[in-house]
Each structure stands twice: as structure tokens, then as C-alpha cells.
Design a protein around this nucleic acid. Structure first.
Lengths: 324, 324
DNA sequence: ATAAAGTATGGAACGCGTTTCACAGCAACC
DNA sequence: GGTTGCTGTGAAACGCGTTCCATACTTTAT
């Protein structure tokens, strides 16, 4: 495989000139430029990007950490990040952490090792202090709330989402409202729990601890929640569920148990995934793809302007269907 | 930022010895090894992986091309590939081609440029000849059928999937069976169409051209199909649908139109996604995650043993629910 | 005509770790 | 006692493009 030295020899110019042609620098006479291009053609030249990366000290690759790709929230997010990256000519290195901090740190090393120029966090288990520390090695954008003051955040307004859901249910007359979330110690989970508690208190709503469910991610998990509710002597009349999948499973199993939705149990989901549409699920639509794009754009800004853009919060939207 | 030269100076050894310590080569006396490790600690040394990559001529990164991440088939596939990669210590560069051949070729250059060691094709629009040509630049594994004889394939048996679906419907007495697929000119689409036609002929089933739909990917697309069927004077009594999402949309809209499923219209989907579960959809389960893992393992073999593993075909499974 | 400014090009250093080769020291083997 | 073979270490070349600096030739300005 040929390299610039060979090209230079063949075109009877210096390696510097070849490099200039390669990078479209001015100050190369047309005839020499021609000669270089011809030599590259003849020798079927392909530049070695590793050498370029080493030389330039950057790679045009940005990394993404998500717990799992195979969850609509994160695949939507990556879709958006991917679009944003492509627009700004970055490539995308994706890492599944499985919610394992060890895996996360392993990937953070890519930043230290200069294999990626920047990093977008889909969801992280690392404490704020660790993120602050790691942010010294490169630009980081987080898509979830985090105590870290050093990294830029692009978030959906979880408080507002929970408020929309609860307000909607209250407007329908509900006072016994349960909550079901995914990972309780991720940024999203923490935000949602906190927002929900605050509303419970502010509105003086009823509450029982067995109206709270956590670690629920899948349709099956939703079924389990329904089964549990069905067995309660005093059951909630409405559930706020952090994922459409879980909400769908909940509705499905509720139907099987003879619980009428929405008459006996109102259900509101999050994300407005396709599954919400077919299940006639009222849901809080989150602009996830847009969040990904925004995050990529923010990171691009940090990498090029070396300035830290302000945190951004994207707004949600209530989509009312038949489940409430 | 420190480099091995500084480490070497500080530990009073040669750069070679530092490299040996770094790579756990034998033949380094314990005291020197200690000294090097201490120097690395003191100077907060982080190796520059770009230099390593350049030097070694490989990157331990493998690329994946998919049309879009945000589709359950592909996010499942990437999930599996991600797991397989992690197991073998590869990192994963993901590229969304949007079914645009130009985008694909752009990414193939990563292989030429030596930025990735190998490539997994989720779905490609490139003709077999182009793939053959590109396969000279590095190892490629495809997850869909392709005319290319040079690249390794890890597939699900689409013929068998279509046959399962049709046989199941025939056993329920259906003779007017329609087909609905996604991209008709991708490998998957072609395989499915061909398999379906062959069965139509073999079984002597009825056929009308307006029982065939292509380019259907989403729940909305499924609704459109249902609407179209509702308007037909002679409608199919059963539909084989290449995606659970589309099938779910179809069922939903059919219900709205007063078409009874499965009595008036039986529907069978593909993938056994969560949405199939909540919609009580009979479906052909595809081992997509496993396919991803298998593809990653195959690529690993090609990269380490330099041998081309045999093509692999994974088997499908019929999951019977209420829609047939 | 001469200084100033721009155009054009090459040499050499740089970024940084890996690997080949040569060689020294030392133990085992016949 | 001499050969064989392993252990341990370093110098130097290598992989490859970018960039700083110096130099030389043209123009343009004065």
C-alpha cells in the first residue's frame, strides 16, 4: 500500500506538497497539483487515517455511552446523535455499559487515549465527582441530569413531564396515583422520583408505598406491575409509568385481570413510542431524537469553539389517548 | 501529556523496555518493571492509542452499517453485535446509511483508511459486485443475503420464515394470502419476495397484485395497508407482514374499520417484538440479537485466524397468538 | 529601481508506540 | 570447557501524515 513518500517521489515533489494537495491548501501550482493527483490515482493511494489522527491529535470520532442500545429511548437517542454527528462529519463510537460503572470507566479511557474527541452520555451510573474528574480529559455532554457542574447537559424536562402527567390525571379526578420507573439511581429515575414526590406533597394526594415500582423496563415488567396492583386491597386509580413498553404491558395484563382501563385504572406512559399508538396509550412525548441531535451539535460547538454552550432543556408534550 | 520517552528517561530504561512493560512482554526484570510502573504512575501516563494503532496497523474497532438505528430489527442487531464485540475487545463504530449507497461507500472507506479492522453489514444497498470489490480492503460480514461470494454471511433463514408463516396460514384454511414487506430491493426484501412467490406457485394459492405491499416500515404504514385492504372488492383473508410494527398498525386499523382479526383477516408478523406480545400478534421470531453476536464472532475469527468461516443460517420460530 | 508582500516548495522535526536486530550475561548440557 | 539456548536490554528503523521554518521566486507598491 502506497504512502505519501511514494506519491511524492512519483510526482517529483516533496512530501509537504503532497500533503498540501491532500488538504487543499493553496500555494500549489496547478501543474504540480495535477502531477500529485495523477500519482495518487496511479498508485491507488489511500491515506492512513491513523497517521492523520496521530499527527493532528484528534480523530473526528465521538463516543456514546448508553446502558443498552436495544431500548427505544436509547435507540432513538442514538439515531439523533448519529444524524447530528453525520452533519458535522463525526463518526460515532457506541458503547453499551449495561449500567455497569466499570464498563463506563473503561470507555471513558477512550477519551484519555485520544481515540475519541468527545463523549455523549446517554445515561450514566457514575457519581458527579467522577464525571467532573473525567471531564478534564475531554468534552462531555450528558443527556440526563447530573450533579456535575463541569459537563454540559441537554435534557428533557423530567419535572415538567411528571407534572403534565399528574396534572392531567388530577384533572380527570384521580387522587390515588402510583408511579413506576426504570432505573431508580440513574439521573432520569432520580429526577422523576423527586418531581413526583414534590407533587404528591404539593397537591396533598393519597399515597401508599406499594403504589411505587422501580426497575421496570419491559412489557413483562408491566404485566407484573398490573398483577401486583390487582392484588392490592386499596389500589391506585391511576399510574404514571416511565416507559410506554411497561405501560403497554400493564394495560394488557390489567385487561386480562378484568381491570377496566381507564375506568378502574388510568395509565399514562412516556415517550410516545409506536407501541403507545397501537395501545391507545396516553403518553408524554419526549423529543428524544431531537435531544440526540442537539447533544451532538452542542458537543461540536465545544470541540470547535472551545466554549461551553449553555445547558439546554427540551420541552415535552402530552399526547392524550384512550388510557386516561 | 507524557509519552514513553519521558517514562523511559525517568525509569532509567530504554523506550523498548517501557513498551515491553506496557504490553506485558516477558523478559523484563522485576525491578525495572517496577521502576517503569512507578514512573507511569508519577507522570500520570496515558498511552496514545492513535500511535498504537498506527504502529500496529489495526485499531480493534469494527464498523457496522445499518439503514437506521431506530428500528427494532437493527437496534436488536446492534445490541448483539455490541455484546459480541465487547467479548472480543473490539469497539463498535456505528453508521446509519439511511439506505443511501453513497453514505455506505463513504463508510466503507473507513476500512480502506484502516480506521476499522472489519465491517458488519446490517443491510446494504450495494450490488454484489461492489461488495466483492470492497471486500479486498478488509474483512466483511453481512447479515443479509447477498450475491457476493466473497463476504461471509450470517443470516436468518428468510425462506424458512416465510414458509412457516404461509404453512401456518394454510393450515388455518387460508388461500388468499397477501404479503407486506419493507425495502423491496434490500437482501431481506428480495429473499422474502422470492420465497413467497415460490410458495404461491407451489401451493397454487390465489393471488392478486393489490395484495402485495412494499416500503412499509411503521405503525402508520400498517394502518395504510389495512385501509387499502378494507377498500378491496376481493380482499386477502390473511396477510404475511415483514415487521411486527406494521402488523400492529394493520390490526389496529383493521379493528377501526370493523374488520375482525383473525376471523376476517389473519395477520402474521415478523420479529416477536414487544409490540407483538401486547397486540396478541402471531409472529415469526427471529434470533436477531444472537445473529449480531454470531456475526461479531465470525468477524473476530476472520481477523484473528485469517480464515473465512462458513456462512451461517439461524433458524426461526413460529410464535402463535390470537391474530391467526 | 527597490523595498515590501505574496506565492511556491522543500527539509526536517514532530506526534508516539512497536518491532527487528544485535548483543551481553548466564545457566544448562555433553 | 565449549556449545547451545534462554534471559534481559537497548539502538534504530518503522508506520505515515502534518506542520514549522527557511528559502527562492514573483509581483505589486513606492
Amino acid at each position: 500500500m502506497s504512502n505519501i513518500t511514494e506519491i511524492a517521489r512519483r510526482a517529483r515533489v516533496s512530501r509537504t506538497t503532497v500533503s498540501r494537495v491532500l488538504n487543499n491548501h493553496p500555494y500549489v501550482k496547478p501543474d504540480k497539483r495535477e502531477a500529485v493527483l495523477k500519482a495518487m490515482q496511479d498508485l491507488n493511494y489511500v491515506p492512513n487515517l491513523n497517521a492523520v489522527n496521530l499527527s493532528r491529535g484528534k480523530t473526528n470520532v465521538i463516543g456514546v455511552i448508553v446502558p443498552t442500545i436495544n431500548h427505544p429511548f436509547f435507540s432513538n437517542l442514538i439515531e439523533g446523535i448519529g444524524r447530528g454527528c453525520h452533519k458535522h462529519h463525526y463518526r460515532l463510537l457506541v458503547h453499551q455499559s449495561n449500567y455497569d460503572p466499570g464498563h463506563e470507566i473503561e470507555f471513558f479511557n477512550m477519551l484519555k487515549y485520544k481515540l475519541i474527541d468527545g463523549l455523549i452520555l446517554g445515561s450514566s451510573m457514575l457519581p458527579a465527582a467522577a464525571l467532573d474528574e473525567l471531564s478534564h480529559y475531554g468534552s462531555i455532554v450528558s443527556c440526563e441530569a447530573s450533579g456535575s457542574r463541569l459537563i454540559t447537559k441537554v435534557l428533557v424536562n423530567h419535572e415538567s413531564g411528571i407534572r403534565m402527567a399528574v396534572d392531567h390525571l388530577r384533572s380527570k379526578g384521580h387522587r390515588r396515583i402510583g408511579l413506576c420507573i426504570g432505573n431508580p439511581i440513574s439521573g432520569i429515575g432520580i429526577s422523576r422520583k423527586k418531581a413526583f414526590s414534590a407533587l404528591l406533597e404539593a397537591y396533598g394526594l393519597d399515597w401508599r408505598d406499594d403504589w411505587y415500582f422501580e426497575g421496570k423496563y419491559s412489557v413483562e415488567d408491566g404485566s407484573a406491575v398490573a398483577a401486583s396492583i390487582a392484588g392490592q386491597s386499596l389500589a391506585p386509580s391511576a399510574m404514571v409509568v416511565g416507559s410506554d413498553y411497561v405501560a403497554a404491558g400493564l394495560i394488557k395484563e390489567a385487561a386480562r385481570q378484568g381491570i377496566k382501563v381507564p375506568e378502574q385504572l388510568a395509565v399514562i406512559g412516556f415517550d410516545n413510542q409506536p407501541i403507545a399508538q397501537v395501545m391507545d396509550l396516553t403518553t408524554i412525548q419526549q423529543p428524544i431524537v431531537q435531544m440526540g441531535e442537539t447533544a451532538a451539535a452542542a458537543l461540536h460547538l465545544m470541540l470547535t469553539e472551545a466554549e461551553r454552550p449553555a445547558d439546554q432543556t427540551l420541552e415535552l408534550e402530552l399526547v392524550v389517548r384512550q388510557s386516561t
